[in-house]
Amino acid sequence: MVRLLFRRAVAALVLMIAVAVAGFVITGLGNSDPGRSILGPQATAAQVEAENHRLGLDRSQVEQFTDWAGGVVRGDLGRSYLGDRPVTEKITNYLPVTMSLVALSMVVIAVLSLVLAVASVSGRAWVDRCVQLLAVIGHVLPGYLLALLLLLLFAVQFQLFPVFGYTPIGESPAQWLRGLALPVIALALGSVAGAALQARGALMDVLEADYVRTLRSRGIGGRSVLFRHALRNASPAWLTSLSLGFVALLAGAFMVEKVFALPGLGTLSVEATSSGDRPVLMGVVVLTGGLVVVVNLLVDLLQMWLIPKARTA
């Protein structure tokens, strides 16, 4: 068990290193001239060269990488080309919005998908149709279109929710929730159906399992069978779809943030992309990649806790 945990952790670490390398490589594919973008068109060639030298961009790629990677290990992601602030500072400023958005959506997806799946296997045909409809909507209507419609209707027309902006949870939990309500709905709605279908499929499979029949033959009631035995055994498929959903949520969050003008990672990354701010982009790659790896690790742990057999795998 301990060895298994250790192995998983090491694998996650190796994956993280690979993510960092990938981040460095893909952001460095083109020929950019950060010195020129920082100093603007009026600066002389000598000034640009000096700026590039100050940034250490006249060194070899390997040297630049080891320098950057060394920083990453110490928790220093370098300095943004725009405004010359530390990347970590920028990311910590923009992260809470995206994290609130994604975490809240995850909770909504987890709860709703479970409720829908349970209702569906309990033989409610209308729930099935509901889930199917949701699945079609979620697949067909991208989050940002849905977000836009919600915005126009509930924020602009009825003025029930703010048009833009984010209130930190520490300042006012109610305002925090109010500001995130529409974005979260837009973000979560599409993924609910996917997770619900996964959970439902797994539940159906489990409910047809031999041991469920045997449990019922012993007089264990339908509710106990469903909630105590079936849900637990069906959890791996559901958890996996949630962890895959996490990646999709990150992507969706980037778009939804734009609609509601939320200052999150998406806003930061798009800004960094259009201004060629490589350090920020590399930071975002490392951070999001790290998040995905950590979430996957957590899901693994959760599965090991729920499914004893997974502990020996």
Binding site: L15, A18, V19, A22, G23, I26, T27, G28, L29, G30, S32, L244, V247, L250, A251, F254, G266, S269, V270, A272, T273, S274, G276, D277, R278, L281, M282, V284, V285, T288, G289, V292, V293, N296
Partner: peptide, 21 residues
């Protein structure tokens, strides 16, 4: 494949666009 799945595709796309257009 697990490496590729650890990188949110939108982030990779942005990174690629920033360097290659």
């Amino acid at each position: 494949s697990s490496l590729a799945m650890s990188l949110p595709s939108i982030v990779v796309l942005l990174a690629i666009i920033s360097s290659l257009g």
